[in-house]
């Protein structure tokens, strides 16, 4: 199972959301990166809908 591979590897964390959780990681020397997350199109619903329509093209 992939989980067991995780247990055997160095933990590398992507943090998305509260930056303090990322700071906690850094303070423990855990290799981590913080995502400066924003809702798609900055929360502009109209733009998000337009993007979603374009993405629906397959």
């Amino acid at each position: 199972m992939k989980v067991n591979e995780l247990f055997k590897s160095e933990l590398k964390v992507i943090n998305m959301g509260l930056e303090s959780f990322y700071q906690d990681m850094k303070s423990q020397d855990v290799s981590a990166i913080h995502v400066n997350w924003k809702p798609a199109a900055g929360g502009n619903e109209k733009m998000a809908a337009l993007l979603a329509r374009m993405k629906s093209l397959q």
Binding site: M47, L50, L51, R53, M54, S56, L57
Partner: peptide
């Protein structure tokens, strides 16, 4: 972006 989607709409591609 809006114009692009309108163009696709007009061409019936969406």
């Amino acid at each position: 972006l809006q114009a692009f989607v309108e163009m696709l709409d007009n061409e019936g591609l969406l």
